[in-house]
Design a protein around this nucleic acid. Structure first.
Lengths: 225, 225
DNA sequence: GTCTATATCACGATAGAC
DNA sequence: GTCTATCGTGATATAGAC
């Protein structure tokens, strides 16, 4: 590990790798992409169970139906594989949440509830995020920058929505002062509930619990609450 | 790993190991205990940075000033070492929080704020808990039972305090119905803030943020809020 | 694009000297 | 109680055949 620290050279901006062979010979990415997706799916599964360091390329490859050598053709290092896993998961997030322009705090919260529903249908991916977000607290972790940026962006977007909602008269005016704190709290509730939920997925309804919280906090912050 | 699944045979109920030599020859545990504490401190540090699976006994031993063979004299397996690390941390929790009899919700929250202060003075240990709590979501993880029990106990204690506070007139009567949900939310905020905080410890004040949340939620739940 | 083979290294655990 | 030595396993990554 950590010998090849610049895997970006083999991927384009969107994170989709473009093998020269596929580009020149067929003009189609379908086959290679399918294999890559299988590898990424399997990697999510393994990173979820053991975290990054303790997962093995050979086992991931086996799960994807190829050998370790074959895997390393698609992702030249373990770290490169991790970054592509995160990038793909993040792309889904961005389409679903970060890219949206929310017109009200209520709309944002209901979107977050849908995100929780999405999570509770994917235990593996949720566990992976729990593990990697925690591991990434180490500044030397390959995903440290990714998660630091992710939370900063998430909090910024949410705080912005809260501030706009206050200016628009949806939320109390004193919202301005505590927007960042509330945004961090909302992210924290989602993360914290995920941790408890993964420990016992049948113990309670993740999305339901978060919805109850969201409704309570929205009522507390509303002008007509 | 996982070859020796019953390491309990060498530890007494409190988790303190009692080497026969120390018991019979000197009647003093001081020297051996000191070494054991050094090992446990180092183990906390390593588990925090890499999680359980990716930490190595040889490196932990080196950090504690002995060899891997020497370490395995005190803790006969890696899993045994982890369980003793958790047990020691849990003992501290029980003394500091779970053992307390809270007379009001306000008192409980201020105790939790102190717990957050405690955490923010120990980045390493906090990161360890984040990582292990997330990893333990896997039912096959050695610490799965520990964390499942821990959260169940924590939520039970907090929900009990909230219900008593409602009966005593401190909190609204409808508290009874949502005590468990609120208790889970409180635990979630603490955990979630810890994750964000470890990613950027200088970005915000962990205990301060949690205090702000605690005050807001207490006000929202109070009869005179 | 996928394979086999291999280099190099680290891991957890055991055995036994001192 | 701590050491050295070693076993068996499995890790990442490379090289090169097909």
């Amino acid at each position: 590990m950590a010998r090849n620290r610049t895997p970006e050279g083999s991927a384009d901006e969107s994170g989709r790798r473009v093998p020269p062979a596929a580009r020149t010979a067929r003009g189609s990415y379908a086959v290679g992409d399918e294999r890559r997706q299988r590898i990424l799916d399997t990697a999510v599964d393994h990173f979820a169970r053991r975290g990054f360091h303790a997962s093995s390329l050979a086992r991931i490859a086996k799960g994807a139906g190829i050998t370790q050598g074959g895997l390393l053709h698609h992702f030249p290092s373990k770290e490169d594989l991790l970054l592509h896993v995160l990038e793909r998961a993040d792309a889904a997030d961005r389409e679903g949440f970060l890219a949206r322009e929310f017109e009200s705090a209520a709309e944002m919260f209901s979107m977050l509830v849908r995100l929780a529903e999405h999570d509770s249908a994917r235990v593996e991916q949720t566990r992976m995020f729990n593990v990697l977000a925690a591991e990434a607290g180490d500044p030397g972790h390959p995903a440290h920058a990714y998660f630091a940026r992710r939370y900063a962006g998430l909090v910024e977007v949410m705080a912005g929505v809260l501030r706009r909602a206050a200016r628009a008269g949806e939320l109390r005016p004193d919202m301005e002062a505590v927007a960042v704190a509330v945004a961090q709290e909302v992210a924290a509730v989602l993360d914290g509930l995920r941790i408890q939920w993964v420990l016992d997925p049948r113990g309670f309804d993740l999305a339901g619990r978060f919805r109850a919280y969201a409704e309570r906090v929205l009522r507390a912050l509303s002008v007509d609450g």
